[in-house]
Design a protein around this nucleic acid. Sequence first.
DNA 1: CCGAAAAAGTAGACCGATCTATATAATGTG
DNA 2: CACATTATATAGATCGGTCTACTTTTTCGG
Lengths: 182, 182
Amino acid sequence: MGQKGTETRLRLLDATQELVESGGYFNAGLNQVIAASGAPRGSLYFHFPDGKDQLVGESIRRAGQAIGAAFDDLGGSAPEFVEGVLRLLGDRLEESGWRKGCPVATVALEMAAASDPLQQACSEVYTSWEDALRARLAGRPDADDLAVTVLALIEGALLLAKAHRSREPLDRVTGALATLLR
Amino acid sequence: MGQKGTETRLRLLDATQELVESGGYFNAGLNQVIAASGAPRGSLYFHFPDGKDQLVGESIRRAGQAIGAAFDDLGGSAPEFVEGVLRLLGDRLEESGWRKGCPVATVALEMAAASDPLQQACSEVYTSWEDALRARLAGRPDADDLAVTVLALIEGALLLAKAHRSREPLDRVTGALATLLR
DNA sequence: CCGAAAAAGTAGACCGATCTATATAATGTG
DNA sequence: CACATTATATAGATCGGTCTACTTTTTCGG
């Protein structure tokens, strides 16, 4: 794959990710993806011959890796780390006009029951985040439960924050996390 | 409004709620709503003159009230109550073939940024649940934070359970809740 | 190095299906 | 009759996907 082709492919993935994150699978119409990326329709099906599901699947896997990498960059003890994550996600959500929450959650809720490949993609991204959190909590006897709990708390708080268009849920949850990770 | 009319209206709301809960706003195509409810197309716009947004908005408000009422029926101390809720939601999710999670969450994530009326409807339903939880936690000094935290935890665990098609997230979170409400 | 053949990628018209919504006629019901 | 409701037909936009023609880049024998 040449340089130009790779760039087009990435622009398509970026545009999809942006649209998916702000409103889910059905908000990312292929016409919008094409318009936002500047790529023509033909290129889309050249780079993603299996169509929309492949495009969205790869896009959320990519987003999952990006966020996983951001996790690794964030240091500190476990409580500090989680607070940092919450602050980061809150900033991102508010600065985007309450559009950008979790890039996976909406697709997971929309498509988990309807599409096996997309359900699997979402499940795998979540598993990778759980693994990353578990590594951060290593040593604790209840690290397995705690990793899932922290992720659920973050996802739930992000959902509520988006629904209310307010940071308040994220802030309120931060205190409880201190208790939980104490 | 006569008896027949009221029944048709309710059948439309029920069908919408069912479809919305399993896959969100865009999974509830009006053609599917009509087919599932048995109501004719004309009746839909007679009973819901503002179209789909009104139909979906009323349907999630209705679902919100129904779940709020179910909360009230569940007794026990705060920890017992929350565990009961998690078990109930887990049963519902699994028995529906991993389709029925939170009837509000998907629409909230899909439409919060795009539709003010629907964002408001979702926000109000969540607020009513937060109020109900806060009442259950009355007396605790941190009842406000705790109510939001418990709701976020439930919503997050439901999301992960649907994404993984597994009760495991709900089970793991149950333990953490015991710690939190101790 | 050269230049032609092949591969990679771009471009956009076009298709049938489906979407929400409207318009209008028919029917039931007090 | 008058009003509430049902019933259909259809409008008009948009959906994901396919198709063929075109341009650029890469490959490779001489």
